[in-house]
Design a protein around this nucleic acid. Structure first.
Length: 346
DNA sequence: CACGCGTGGGT
DNA sequence: TACCCAAGCGT
C-alpha cells in the first residue's frame, strides 16, 4: 500500500503554517513536540512562543531555574514535561557538549522523550526514517486498514507503529510524519471525519465499509476518583504563606497554599493545621469552594481564611512568606492561580 | 503494563 | 452532568 504519495501531494498544498514548521533546529522541534503532547495547538501556541522567546536555545534553558521554567509552563498542565525538559537540557550540556544528539537511540534515551518525540526529532531534523505515531496517526491508520484493535492497548501500539514504519516515505520522512498528523487533525478528525476531501479516500478501508465513525476503538476509560483539598489563606499585611509541592503526585514542583486533605469540618482542619504546620488557626472561615477536574481525578477544593496568625507563630521551615508583588515569580496550579487572581482583583 | 499525570473545549 | 477528546511519557 502506498499512502505516502497521495499524502505528500496533499501536504504540499494543505500544510498548516505553524510557528515551528520549517525549523530543523532539534531544540526548537523538541520544545514544540513536548509542549504539544496531549495539548491542542490553540492552547499551546502561546506557550511555545513565550518559551522559545525566553529560552531560545539549549544553553539558556539549561541555565534557568526550575521555578522560572515552571512559571512559563503555568496553566499548561502535565508539569513533569517541563521538569524533564530542564533536566534533559542540563544533561545535554553536561554530557554532549551542548549539542543535541542526532543518533536515534541516544535521543530516545533522554528523559521525557519517548518513541513519538524521538521519531519527530530524528525525522524532521535529521531526515532519518522513523515513523512518529501520535493519537492522530493511530486514528488515521486504524481507519485506513479498518482495524478494531484498541489503539491504546500494547497490541494496538505495536500493530500501528509497525504499520506506520512500513508506510513512511523513505525520501521525506519528516514531511510524511507531519502530513499524517495534519491529516488527522484537519480531515480525519475523531468526530465527523471529512472523507469526501480526504486524499486517502481511494485506499481507506473504513471509508469503503462506511465504518469510519466506529474507529478508532479505545479501551474503556478509567473512573475518576474524588478527593477534597482544604487550602488555608494565611495573610499578614502584604504577605501570604505558600509552600512547594514535592514528591510524586499532582502538581509536583509547583507551589500552593498550606493544605489539609480530606472532607473535614473547619475545627478538624484547624487542629491539623496546628499539628502539621504549627499554624494556630482559631477561626477558619470558608471563602470559596470550587470543583477541579483532572484526567484521573475530581477535586473538591475549599479555601479558608485564617484570620488570627502572627508570623512568629509559624515554625514550619518549609513554609514561605511571599509578598503579593512577588507572587508572580512562583508557579501555581490553575485552581490556585484563579483563586489568587480573584484576591488581587477585590 | 495499567495507571498517574492538567487543562480547556466540544457535545 | 458527564462524558470525550488533544502532537505521550514515566513507572
Amino acid at each position: 500500500m502506498d499512502i505516502a504519495s497521495p499524502l505528500l501531494l496533499w501536504y504540499d498544498r494543505h500544510a498548516r503554517t505553524l510557528p515551528w514548521r520549517g525549523s530543523r533546529d532539534p531544540y526548537i522541534i523538541w520544545v514544540s513536540e513536548i509542549i504539544f503532547q496531549q495539548t491542542r495547538i490553540e492552547q499551546g501556541t502561546g506557550y511555545f512562543l513565550r518559551f522559545v522567546g525566553r529560552f531560545p536555545d539549549l544553553h539558556s534553558l539549561a541555565a534557568a531555574g526550575e521555578d522560572e521554567v515552571l512559571r512559563l509552563w503555568q496553566g499548561l498542565g502535565y508539569y513533569s514535561r517541563a521538569r524533564n525538559m530542564l533536566f534533559t537540557a542540563r544533561f545535554i550540556v553536561e554530557n554532549h557538549g551542548g549539542i543535541f544528539p542526532s543518533d536515534f537511540e541516544m535521543i530516545r534515551k533522554l528523559k521525557g522523550i519517548g518513541d513519538y518525540t524521538a521519531s519527530c526529532i530524528a525525522s524532521i531534523c535529521f531526515g532519518q526514517v522513523h515513523a512518529a505515531v501520535d493519537g492522530n496517526v493511530y486514528r488515521v491508520l486504524s481507519r485506513v486498514i479498518a482495524d478494531k484493535t484498541a489503539i491504546d492497548s500494547t497490541k494496538g501500539q505495536v500493530l500501528f507503529k509497525r504499520l506506520a514504519q512500513e508506510l513512511i516515505s523513505r525520501q521525506r520522512p519528516g514531511d510524511f510524519n507531519e502530513a499524517l498528523m495534519d491529516l488527522g487533525a484537519t480531515v480525519c478528525k475523531p468526530r465527523s471525519p471529512e472523507c469526501t476531501i480526504c486524499p486517502l479516500i481511494n485506499l481507506c478501508r473504513a471509508c469503503e465499509l462506511k465504518i469510519q465513525g466506529e474507529l478508532p476503538v479505545k479501551s474503556p476509560a478509567i473512573k475518576k476518583s474524588a478527593s477534597v483539598m482544604n487550602y488555608l489563606l494565611v495573610m499578614q499585611g502584604e504577605e501570604i504563606v505558600i509552600q512547594k509541592r514535592t514528591g510524586k503526585g499532582i502538581w509536583n514542583g509547583l507551589y500552593e497554599l498550606p493544605m489539609i486533605a480530606g472532607d473535614l469540618e473547619p475545627a478538624s482542619i484547624a487542629a491539623e493545621c496546628q499539628s502539621v504546620y504549627g499554624i494556630k488557626a482559631d477561626n477558619l472561615s470558608e471563602i470559596r469552594r470550587i470543583k477541579h477536574v483532572l484526567t484521573h481525578a475530581k477535586l473538591d477544593i475549599r479555601f479558608y481564611a485564617v484570620t488570627t496568625v502572627s508570623k512568629a507563630s509559624i515554625g514550619n521551615k518549609s513554609l514561605l512568606w511571599v509578598s503579593g508583588r512577588n507572587i508572580v515569580e512562583y508557579p501555581f496550579p490553575k485552581p490556585l492561580v484563579d483563586f489568587l487572581d480573584s484576591l488581587s482583583e477585590s
